[in-house]
Design a protein around this nucleic acid. Structure first.
Lengths: 148, 148
DNA sequence: ATTTGTTGTAATCTTTTTGATTACGACGAT
DNA sequence: ATCGTCGTAATCAAAAAGATTACAACAAAT
C-alpha cells in the first residue's frame, strides 16, 4: 500500500548533493552514510537520476553533482526518475489482473475505474510538481539555522 | 511502488453488490467469480467494508448489501476502509527508517519532506472523494447499454 | 605505469508483503 | 437437522524490495 522508499532515498540523495557538493566530494559511500543504506542502493539511485538528466556522476574519480539548476528539479521529476525503472508502467494503483469478462462488472470495471484512478494519480503528481529541490534546500538551511 | 489490488478488489466488490443485489443473493463466491480471486479474499474485503459501515453481510444465510446510499460512498471511503487494515498508518509514501541524525540532511529530511508528501497524498485523496459509487454504477449502466 | 579510490553492474540472499488456499466452527433459513 | 454461507485462523507460495558481496572498468594521482 505504499510507495517504495526508493523515492525518499532519491530525494535525500539529491539534498545531500546540493548541501555538500561545494565542500566535499560526494561519493555513494558518503550519501549512503547519511541515508544509512547500502552504498549500492545509492549507486542504483544515482544511475536512475543520471538517466533522467538530473545528476552527473564521475566514474572512476567519483563524486556526484547536480547538472541542472535546483530550481528546475521538482519532486515529480525525482518521482518519475526512480519509478520509471523496473517493470512498473508508472501506474500508482494496481489492478487485480483478471476480472471476469463474462460478468458485466468484470468486463467494464477497468474502463470505468481507470480514468478516475488516473485523475487521482495526476492530482498527486501535480502536487509534487510544486516543490523544487531549491525549496527543500532552503528549508534545510532554515532548519539548520534553528538548530544553532 | 503500487497501491495494493485490495483497493480495486473492494471497488469491484461494491459494484457487483450494487449491480446485482436486487436480483441475486450476492455471496462471497458470487463476487469472487466476477473478480476472479479466492472467495476468502472477498470475505476479508467485505469484513473491512463492514467495519467501515459501508456494507452489511448476512452471516449464515449469506449475501451482502450496501447499507448506505451509493451517493454517499466515495472511492476515498473505500480506499480508507481497505487500507486502514494491516500495520499501515495510512501513509502513502514510505520513508527509509533510519536517516543518520549525525548528518544535517539526515536529521532534517523527515521534517522537511513529510509535509510535502502529506500534501501530495491529500491531493490524491481529494480526487478520490469526488467519485461516488453511484457515479460508477451509472457509468456501468451506460457501458452495458453500449454493449447491447 | 601502477596504485588507489570509486563507479557500474551482476548475482545472490533475506525479508517483507501480498495474496492463495485449506480448514473448520458458527450461524441462519428452510 | 441439514445446507449453504460467513468469520477466521493457519499455512503456503509468489512477488517485491532491499541488503550484501563481488568484481571489472575507469579516472586521477603519484
Amino acid at each position: 500500500m505504499k510507495i517504495t522508499s526508493r523515492f525518499t532515498v532519491a530525494v535525500q540523495t539529491l539534498l545531500v548533493i546540493v548541501r555538500f557538493s561545494q565542500t566535499t566530494k560526494v561519493t555513494s559511500d558518503f550519501i549512503a552514510a547519511s541515508v544509512q543504506v547500502n552504498p549500492v542502493v545509492i549507486r542504483r539511485t544515482l544511475l536512475s537520476l543520471k538517466a533522467a538528466g538530473i545528476v552527473e556522476v564521475k566514474a572512476g574519480s567519483g563524486g556526484a553533482s547536480l547538472c541542472r539548476d535546483a530550481r528546475t528539479v521538482t519532486l515529480y521529476d525525482v518521482f518519475r526518475a526512480v519509478d520509471a525503472v523496473e517493470g512498473a508502467e508508472g501506474e500508482l494503483f494496481h489492478f487485480h489482473e483478471k476480472p471476469n469478462p463474462a460478468c458485466p462488472v468484470g468486463r467494464n470495471i477497468r474502463g470505468i475505474l481507470d480514468p478516475h484512478l488516473a485523475d487521482a494519480q495526476r492530482a498527486m503528481e501535480k502536487e509534487l510538481q510544486k516543490v523544487t529541490l531549491f525549496d527543500l534546500a532552503q528549508e534545510l538551511r532554515a532548519a539548520e539555522q534553528r538548530q544553532n
